[in-house]
Design a protein around this nucleic acid. Structure first.
Lengths: 117, 117
DNA sequence: ACGGAAGCACACACATTTTCGTAAGTATAA
DNA sequence: TTATACTTACGAAAATGTGTGTGCTTCCGT
């Protein structure tokens, strides 16, 4: 009966699957990488991540915040000022994500060269 | 003029972005993780990865093959017999992907506990 | 000094694009 | 009949982009 006690992403019903999807989502990955260098405001984050729309950035940030990877700090001033940074847990996953991205960036030449399509 | 010489996933136009998307795609991640334990046939892979359809598995495998992460070996027999395993490069990325998944699996309790939604 | 424009951090409605699952089909052997 | 390894067509569902609005402040030109 211990089929759900140990988290396993290969298992369809394991909640870890959803969290993994948030982290590996198109923009989620890039948010984590971008925030590794420190705190950023919404607009700065948007400028940093090429091609992201306001809508998707906001949505990705909320998901990562709900999972406890990103911390949102709103300063009650006008015009609005909101800071985003990584939680301790967020820093751990961001490090893995970054390692993956770096690995791909590093062997990109090799990948593109071997590609026929 | 050296804006495209160094691969950078944060850059919209960098080809590494596409490769990263293949690797971090919903089923791509799981394929890489599943193949870490060794060679698997199509059907075995499908049974291993909970919830994947034939269509998506085939598609994911082809993308990963084109990028040089997965090797496909077809034996010309009937009924068909096709083996899938990781290339050396594939083993590197799979290791990073697995590290990420393990990290999430390991802190799943903490993540779910902190969630309000 | 005064009007206009831009920036901030989003939310919301709408349209499009892409992704995904389902069902059916293939040829053959056990 | 079932298993193998897919492919294709179709339609549903999810992801994503676009444009619009908000309330206020700061900067810019004249």
């Amino acid at each position: 009966m211990a089929h759900d006690l140990i988290p396993d992403v290969l298992n369809d019903r394991c909640p870890s699957r959803a969290v993994l999807n948030h982290v590996t989502s198109r923009w989620g990955v890039l948010v984590l990488i971008a925030l590794q260098d420190g705190t950023l405001r919404f607009s700065a984050l948007r400028r940093r991540i090429g091609g992201v729309s306001e809508r998707m950035l906001a949505q990705s940030l909320r998901l990562l915040e709900d999972d406890g990877f990103v911390r949102r700090t709103a300063h009650p001033v006008v015009p609005p000022h909101v800071d985003y940074d990584l939680t301790p847990l967020g820093r751990e996953v961001a490090a893995r994500v970054h390692a993956l991205a770096a690995c791909i960036e590093g062997s990109l030449d090799q990948i593109l060269a071997a590609r026929k399509v």
